[in-house]
Design a protein around this nucleic acid. Structure first.
Lengths: 215, 215
DNA sequence: GTCCAGCTGTCATTAATCTGACAGCAGCTA
DNA sequence: TAGCTGCTGTCAGATTAATGACAGCTGGAC
C-alpha cells in the first residue's frame, strides 16, 4: 500500500461503488471472477480507472485472469473500513432524520444508527425503527459511554453548529451533515456535507440550459 | 458569457453555495456589497476561486469595490435557473420520499415537488404535505399534461430503472436518483445520483484510517 | 489633485486527476 | 511445446481544475 495521503478523493468516492457492485455480484450473480472492464461497465467507469483506483492499495488481481469477486470485495471492504460496524448518533428526528434511521442500505456499509436525539418535547420518547428518541442533553453521556465516533446532523441550519460542537466535545470524530450550512470543526474532525438543496441545483442548471438552447 | 461547455463541474457545484450565502446575506445581514474574500471566507473557498467561478459567466463586480449582494444574487440565480419554479414529480412515497416532499429548503432553489406517486396500495391516497399520493400509472399523464421536466426517484434499487424509463417516456429530462443503482438513460437526459450509502463511506474511510494510526 | 489601500478580472503557473499505451503473466488450443 | 487472446499493473502524456501574480479600477484621505 502506498502513501495514503496521495490517494485522490475521487478514488475514495468510487470505492464504495465497486464495493456495492461486488457485493451484488457475489450475492445474486454466480460469478467468481470479474475483469476491470466488466466491473467498470456496470458502473460507467473506464476499466483503466478501475485498475488505477485499486492499484493504489495493492495488487488484487491476476494478470491474464481478473479479480476474484469475493476476495476483492473483502479487500475493498477492509480498505473502506466497512468490514466492521460503526455505531452512529443522529441528532434531529424530523422527516429526514426518521428517513435516515429507517434507511435500509446503510447496514451493508457498516453504519448503524444506534441512538437518536432531538430537543423537541413532542418527539422525545417516540420510537423510530425501535429506537427511542432521547433528549439532546443525554447525547454526550451516551456518545462517550459507547465510544461513538460518528455523528449525523439532521437539524435546521441554525442549530447545526451547536449540535456539532456538542458532538465534538463528546468525542465524535466524523460528522455527516445534512444541515445546509458550513460547520466549523477542529482539524482532527472530518465533516461530510450532504446538502440536498445544493445537489438538486446542478440538475436545474442543466435543465435550464437545455430549455434555452431548445428554443 | 463564455462557452458553457468548458465550465468546470466543480464550479457549478459551488454556485449554489454562493447563491444561498448571498440570499442569507441579503435577507438577514444588512450588507450591500461583498468582496470575494468575504464570500469565500464564509464558505471556506479561496477568494481567487470565487472570482474565477463568477468570471466564467461575466463581470459582476466592480474593481476596487466588490459585488453588490442583491445584484449578484439575482445574477447567480439566473445562471443556475433558480429564478423560476421547476415542478417535479417524485416516485416512491417511502420514508425518504416523504422527507423530500416535506423538506423546506428546496423552494429557494426553485424546486417544487408538485406530485407524488407510488405503487403501494397502502400509500396511494395518503396525503403528504397536502399532496395526494397517486398511483404510478397516473404519472405519465400528469407529467405530460403539466410539462414536468424533473423527476425524483426514491424507490428501491430494483424498481428504479423501470421508473426512470417511464419518466423518460413521459418527457422528463432530468432525474434526481436516490436509488442506489446506476440508471441507463438517453444522452439528452441528465441524471444526478444522490447515493446516501455511498456518501457515508468516505467518512467511515477516514474514521477507519484515523483509528488505525491512533493505536 | 495625488496618493494609497483594497478590490476585480485574467493570464500564467502549478497541482490533481484521468486516459492511453504497453510490458508481462495466465490459460487455452493444438 | 509454441502461439494466441485477454487481462493486470504502471508509466507517460493529456486533460481538467486550482492557485498565484498582477494590471487596472475605485473611493477615501489629505
Amino acid at each position: 500500500m502506498k502513501d495514503r495521503e496521495k490517494i485522490p478523493k475521487a478514488t475514495i468516492e468510487r470505492l464504495p461503488l465497486y464495493y456495492r457492485c461486488l457485493d451484488k455480484m457475489a450475492t445474486f450473480e454466480d460469478v467468481e471472477v470479474v475483469s476491470s472492464k466488466d466491473l467498470g461497465g456496470k458502473l460507467d467507469i473506464p476499466s483503466t480507472q478501475v485498475r488505477k483506483d485499486l492499484s493504489y492499495y495493492g495488487e488484487f488481481g491476476r494478470r491474464g485472469v481478473g479479480y476474484n469477486v469475493n476476495e476483492l470485495k473483502r479487500s475493498v471492504g477492509k480498505i473502506l473500513g466497512v468490514n466492521r460496524t460503526w455505531p452512529a448518533a443522529l441528532v434531529g428526528a424530523g422527516n429526514l432524520g426518521r428517513a435516515l434511521v429507517n434507511y435500509g442500505s446503510f447496514e451493508m456499509m457498516g453504519l448503524e444508527i444506534t441512538c437518536v436525539f432531538d430537543n423537541d418535547l413532542d418527539k422525545i420518547g417516540n420510537l423510530i425503527n425501535e429506537r427511542e428518541v432521547k433528549s439532546v442533553q443525554e447525547m454526550s453521556q451516551k456518545v462517550m459511554k459507547n465510544e461513538i465516533k460518528l455523528g449525523i446532523i439532521s437539524v435546521p441550519a441554525e442549530a447545526a453548529q451547536a449540535v456539532a460542537d456538542q458532538m465534538i466535545e463528546a468525542g465524535i470524530k466524523a460528522i455527516w451533515n445534512f444541515a445546509p450550512t458550513r460547520l466549523y470543526v477542529p482539524e482532527d474532525v472530518s465533516v461530510k456535507n450532504e446538502d440536498l438543496a445544493v445537489g438538486i441545483v446542478s440538475l436545474i442548471y442543466h435543465l435550464s440550459w437545455q430549455e434555452e438552447t431548445d428554443v
